[in-house]
Design a protein around this nucleic acid. Structure first.
Lengths: 215, 215
DNA sequence: GCACCAAACCTTACGTCGTAATGTATCGTG
DNA sequence: CACGATACATTACGACGTAAGGTTTGGTGC
């Protein structure tokens, strides 16, 4: 018997929790139902299919992003929302690869695009310039997070330990430039990949300002 | 009865062909075997598991990337290899999300990293600067390709048609800035998203040159 | 020509998945 | 108290990856 009354929102929240904790591949209708004290097929009274559940989950992720304000400093607004995107995608590591295959954008997704275009437009950019700036900022942010997610470690010391162990140890010593890089960067005290985010984003925003004559 | 002698390489090539043509989700052991005129379990005499098959496939993708030369102009070498990454990932759209989950890098993956570090090092960058430059260029390239793969259309006219149809039509008209953007960019004759690649990459490379005092 | 063996290939089976079809129980409202 | 809707359960189907074990094939030494 069900522990509580089931609602579409409860299903969504539990699905998010499972994906966050155990990865998207651990999100199965049976497992989700078990977590809710219910049988798998009962979920279909609250969710049309697993596919639209994923759509809704992705849109919920978009809703967590801090939107840029159109009346603020474009540079600071973009910086803030980019940092927010990164934080959100780190909280929901399953979301980024999933966004790729989703076809129908939810309301939060649309609101996100609207706010970004509004911010760049308010900064005085032409439509073509908005397209350029939007593309390059998002490319950097998505690509950076993708690289973070690719990393098989979560911290600097963990990275250092991995580089030393096999099979990485042999691979690194066999490649002189990787060895040089490992020694001076990865094995340097206090190194973490995430420190590359702020300077990289600043570099991109500087480039936009310079390209389009923005303050 | 098998049409030809089976080899690990034949399995790999066929697997790549299936993934390229029908997407990674269409790559099943049974389907792969059928394509090779063989039963599913026979594949396990040439490939340890589907998981290591995916590892090998990803490394084969890395092998297709044009490596930067350490003795050339760093800017041109990076530009060339970045364009190559984009082309390769567009040829194998299944590869990018897959690289994320693979844990053990193959030889081509290692050679790729080695060549990139060598190129940046030869340009005179310090280890920390190599880390910065490498991170920001790869972030841009991966992120740009990710955005391209996200796009639910393949060409400019196709994009324009989609923007006009439902459910996008209603969504766009409900958001004034998206409408403005759609009218002046997406619906403009000759627009394609891929045109954003070269200027975006140039902006990033300019930023690197300026940040680190490179020619 | 023949016995032998390893490699290549097949058959069967198990537990997983998403979900269609159908059945049962519970509850708000008359 | 009856009745119709809503919530939940059961059973079943065809897919998936692959473990375990059986069969065919081709090359080698006598």
């Amino acid at each position: 018997m069900p522990a509580k009354k089931l609602t579409p929102d409860a299903v969504l929240v539990t699905a998010l929790a499972i994906a966050d904790r155990h990865g998207i591949e651990a999100l199965t209708m049976r497992g989700l139902a078990r977590e809710l004290g219910v049988e798998a097929m009962s979920l279909y009274h609250h969710v049309a299919s697993k596919d639209v559940l994923l759509d809704v989950m992705v849109d919920r992720v978009y809703a967590e992003i801090a939107l840029p304000a159109p009346d603020g400093d474009w540079r600071e607004e973009l910086r803030r929302r980019s940092a927010s995107v990164r934080e959100v995608l780190r909280r929901h590591p399953w979301a980024l690869p999933l966004m790729e295959s989703r076809r129908s954008p939810g309301p939060a997704n649309l609101a996100y695009h609207e706010a970004n275009i509004a911010c760049l437009r308010a900064a005085g950019l032409t439509p073509a310039q908005v397209a350029h700036a939007y593309a390059v900022v998002d490319a950097f942010v998505y690509g950076f997070v993708l690289q973070e997610l690719m990393l098989p470690f979560d911290s600097g010391p963990e990275a250092a330990a991995m580089i030393r162990d096999e099979p990485w140890g042999a691979a690194v010593t066999a490649h002189p430039n990787m060895a040089w890089f490992a020694e001076h960067v990865v094995l340097a005290p206090g190194y973490t990949f995430e420190r590359e985010f702020a300077p990289g984003l600043a570099l991109v925003l500087d480039g936009i300002a310079e390209s389009f004559g923005l303050p």
